[in-house]
Amino acid sequence: MPTSPPRTERVEARIAPEVLEIVRRAAEIEGRSVSDFLVGAAQEAARRTIEQMQIIRLSMEEQQRFAALLLTPPELPPAMARAAKAHKKLIAPSQ
């Protein structure tokens, strides 16, 4: 079994007694300490939250529309085309 890195940080939280009882019961069922159970649950919740913010999920229809727009992008509006042209002049690569 791989060893865990040493724990050096401390987090405190106040919870209602009935919530603590549920957590104790769940930790007991898994054969873990309350602290270990809470750390594991918090870590899993944190990973899910980060994943939800970093992964874009699209329906099949949305995927097809996205790919089509990448392959054949719409024409730029006139103001955007002028801005792109001005940007190229201003940020011309040095040669």
Rank of each mutant, 00 (worst) to 15 (best):
R82Q: 09
E62P: 02
S4Q: 05
A81M: 02
E9S: 15
V23Q: 02
A86T: 10
E18T: 07
T72V: 08
R24A: 14
Q63W: 12
I56T: 13
A84F: 03
K85M: 13
Q54N: 13
L76A: 13
E75T: 11
V11I: 15
F66K: 08
R14P: 03
F37Y: 15
K85L: 15
E30Y: 02
L76R: 14
S4L: 06
A13P: 04
E62N: 03
I50C: 09
R25E: 14
E51K: 06
M1W: 08
A79F: 08
R7T: 06
L70K: 02
M80Q: 10
P73I: 02
A92C: 05
G31A: 03
V34P: 04
A86Y: 02
L38Q: 12
E9V: 12
I29D: 09
M60D: 13
F37S: 12
R82C: 01
E28K: 01
P77M: 06
A46E: 12
P93W: 06
V39M: 14
K88S: 14
P2S: 13
R24V: 06
E28W: 00
L58W: 07
P78E: 04
R14L: 15
E30T: 00
T49F: 15
E61M: 04
R10Q: 03
E61W: 00
Q95F: 10
Q54R: 10
S59A: 00
T8L: 05
G31I: 02
L58Q: 12
T3H: 08
L70D: 10
L38N: 01
M1A: 14
E61Y: 00
P93N: 08
I56H: 10
R14D: 13
R65G: 07
P73V: 02
S94L: 13
I55N: 05
M53R: 11
L71N: 13
A84R: 13
D36R: 15
I91K: 12
E12M: 08
F37C: 10
A68W: 09
L76E: 11
A42L: 13
I55F: 06
M60H: 05
E61N: 03
P78C: 07
M53S: 15
R57F: 08
P2N: 12
A92F: 00
E12P: 01
G40L: 06
R82M: 06
E61H: 02
A45T: 01
G40I: 04
E44P: 00
M60T: 05
S59G: 00
A67W: 06
A92D: 07
A41H: 07
V11A: 10
K85T: 12
A26H: 13
G40K: 04
L20G: 15
R47T: 05
F37H: 15
Q43T: 07
Q64S: 14
E18K: 07
R32G: 00
E61G: 03
K89L: 12
V11W: 07
P73L: 03
L38D: 11
E62Y: 03
E30Q: 11
A42F: 09
P17K: 00
K85Y: 03
E28L: 01
P6G: 04
L70R: 05
R47H: 04
E44H: 05
L20K: 14
M1E: 15
R32W: 07
L70Q: 09
T3M: 10
R32D: 00
Q95E: 15
L71D: 13
L69F: 07
P74E: 08
P17H: 01
R24F: 01
A41D: 09
A86F: 01
R82D: 09
V34T: 12
